[in-house]
């Protein structure tokens, strides 16, 4: 078969995976971060089952009820209620869904675009490389946060717009990292063999280069997951992200300001803690993956 020897060589990069997986058990395995991330995902998935109340509808008579263990709290609203009498626990549970969806989709879309452009830039070289890298450089020079806010202000608040905006801001890193990887991979034997065997450029990029750069992209995606979640929360907090009355954590913090001066701490502390816990877990996992998979990425 055309280029079968070549493809079996590149497959060996994947075959080494079990050995790498064995390394998972050794040192500093981030068990707690993974457990937290898994929990958040499960909560997001089963939000309808887990949430005791409708997150978007409240009873005005129950406004600013404190968590159950404080005076005036009720078991019915375990973590209290907000300024519209909505159940904080239910909002946090549904908020996990928004954070997970936005965070994952952003890193996947950005990772896809960036990896695609990075592979093309690195493998095709010449003017393709020049054009893509000049655009990447120029894009990197733009102020990310401000630019995202601007885009959000124009496009208007919605979950899908947030995803588009953040993906548009975050793809550049992948392009840079993947391109650098491709430059070294393309000189390896199995790629040369595939070229000699007459594989088309598309086939080589898809079957021989992609499997070898995908690790780096995954590490980067994990590291950026936290950044994407913070960015979403920031946009939502400013009122240009997830539109009310949806229960995004950033939006809850914005609402929480209304009760802050009266000392209604739970509206500020709880959503922020959720963000921090999730971002911290993603960062710890990403750091660990980076050291395990990709020592070259350490200085990122």
């Amino acid at each position: 078969m055309n280029g079968s020897a070549a493809s079996s060589r590149s497959a060996s990069a994947i075959l080494t995976l079990p050995r790498r997986l064995a390394a998972f058990r050794t040192e500093g395995f981030p068990l707690i971060p993974i457990a937290i991330l898994m929990t958040v995902m499960l909560v997001a998935l089963f939000a309808n089952v887990l949430a005791p109340h409708n997150p978007e509808v409240g009873v005005l008579g129950d406004r600013f009820r404190p968590p159950a263990w404080q005076a005036n709290g009720t078991i019915d609203h375990l973590l209290g209620t907000d300024h519209l009498g909505r159940d904080v626990l239910s909002r946090l549970i549904f908020g996990a869904r928004i954070s997970v969806i936005v965070g994952l989709t952003v890193v996947i879309v950005a990772g896809f675009i960036g990896t695609l452009l990075g592979i093309m830039s690195g493998y095709l070289g010449r003017w393709v490389d020049q054009v893509i890298m000049r655009i990447t450089d120029a894009w990197l020079a733009l102020p990310g946060v401000t630019f995202a806010i601007f885009l959000a202000a124009i496009l208007g608040p919605s979950v899908s717009n947030i995803i588009i905006i953040l993906a548009a801001v975050y793809w550049t890193r992948y392009a840079r990292v993947v391109r650098a990887e491709v430059l070294s991979v393309r000189e390896r034997d199995f790629v040369r063999l595939a070229v000699v065997a007459g594989c088309s450029k598309g086939t080589i990029m898809r079957r021989h280069i992609l499997p070898n750069v995908v690790n780096s992209a995954i590490v980067l995606a994990t590291l950026q997951l936290g950044q994407a979640i913070i960015a979403e929360a920031t946009l939502s907090f400013l009122g240009v992200g997830v539109p009310p009355p949806m229960p995004a954590w950033g939006l809850m913090l914005a609402d929480g300001k209304k009760g802050m001066m009266a000392g209604y701490w739970w509206l500020t502390v709880l959503p922020g803690s959720c963000i921090m816990l999730m971002v911290l877990s993603a960062n710890l996992l990403g750091d660990w993956l980076r050291v395990k998979f990709d020592p070259q990425l350490r200085q990122l």
Binding site: A233, F237, G250, T268, G272, I275, M276
Partner: peptide
């Protein structure tokens, strides 16, 4: 350093106000 990278700046601000 990890905490610094994991806490949104506006939340740090809100906590301090509180």
């Amino acid at each position: 350093a990890l905490l610094g990278l994991s806490m949104p700046s506006f939340w740090v601000g809100l906590l301090m106000i509180l």
